[in-house]
Amino acid sequence: MPRPEPRERRRAELTAAAQLAMAQAHAGREHEALRTCREVRELSGRPGELRERPGAPLTRRKQEVATLIADGLSSKEVAERLTISPRTVDGLVERILRKLDFSSRTQVASWVAASAVS
């Protein structure tokens, strides 16, 4: 059986790590999930933000907020970074959770990590 190309193997490893982050988030192991998410995003070479894709489930602003959530920022810190009110951030976070059918910010962070791989 031929060995996979290094690029294909790296992508498979990142995909597996992103899936691990999702599993950790669903199991309520938030600290582990956030650490795994950061590692995936750093290793993917795209730690800064989600890639724009046609038909993406989130608006650009919600993608910005999701990325900052994945960086571990609180609502207050996100608000300061984006120069919007913390209440606006709370509303955006609620809409992100509803849109993605998630119940925690950790799940959003895991989704961002998985998006960095795909």
Rank of each mutant, 00 (worst) to 15 (best):
L82T: 06
L82W: 08
L82M: 13
L82S: 06
T83R: 14
T83I: 05
T83V: 11
T83H: 14
I84Y: 09
I84G: 01
I84F: 06
I84L: 10
S85H: 11
S85P: 09
S85M: 06
P86H: 05
P86N: 07
R87I: 09
R87T: 15
R87A: 15
R87C: 07
R87N: 15
R87V: 15
R87S: 15
T88N: 14
T88P: 00
T88H: 15
T88L: 14
T88I: 05
T88Q: 15
T88W: 15
V89C: 08
V89K: 03
V89M: 04
V89F: 03
D90V: 00
D90T: 07
D90P: 03
D90E: 10
G91D: 02
G91M: 03
L92W: 10
L92E: 10
L92M: 11
L92S: 05
V93Q: 09
V93F: 02
V93D: 01
E94H: 14
E94I: 00
E94D: 13
E94P: 03
E94K: 14
R95M: 00
R95Q: 15
I96A: 02
I96D: 05
I96P: 01
I96S: 04
I96H: 07
L97Y: 04
L97N: 05
L97G: 02
L97A: 01
L97Q: 05
R98T: 14
K99I: 11
K99Y: 08
L100I: 13
L100K: 11
L100H: 13
D101C: 03
D101T: 07
D101Q: 12
D101R: 14
D101G: 02
F102R: 08
F102Y: 15
F102N: 00
F102G: 05
S103E: 11
S103W: 01
S103F: 02
S103L: 01
S104W: 06
S104N: 10
S104D: 10
S104Q: 06
S104C: 13
S104G: 11
S104Y: 08
R105T: 14
R105D: 07
V108G: 09
V108L: 12
V108Q: 08
V108C: 12
V108I: 15
V108R: 08
A109P: 07
A109R: 00
A109H: 06
A109C: 09
A109W: 04
S110G: 15
S110N: 10
S110Y: 11
S110L: 06
S110H: 08
W111K: 00
W111T: 00
W111V: 03
W111C: 02
W111N: 04
V112C: 05
V112P: 02
V112A: 11
V112Q: 02
V112M: 03
V112E: 03
A113N: 07
A113P: 08
A113Q: 06
A113K: 09
A114D: 10
A114C: 12
S115F: 02
S115H: 07
S115T: 05
S115Q: 15
S115P: 00
A116C: 04
A116L: 02
A116H: 04
V117S: 03
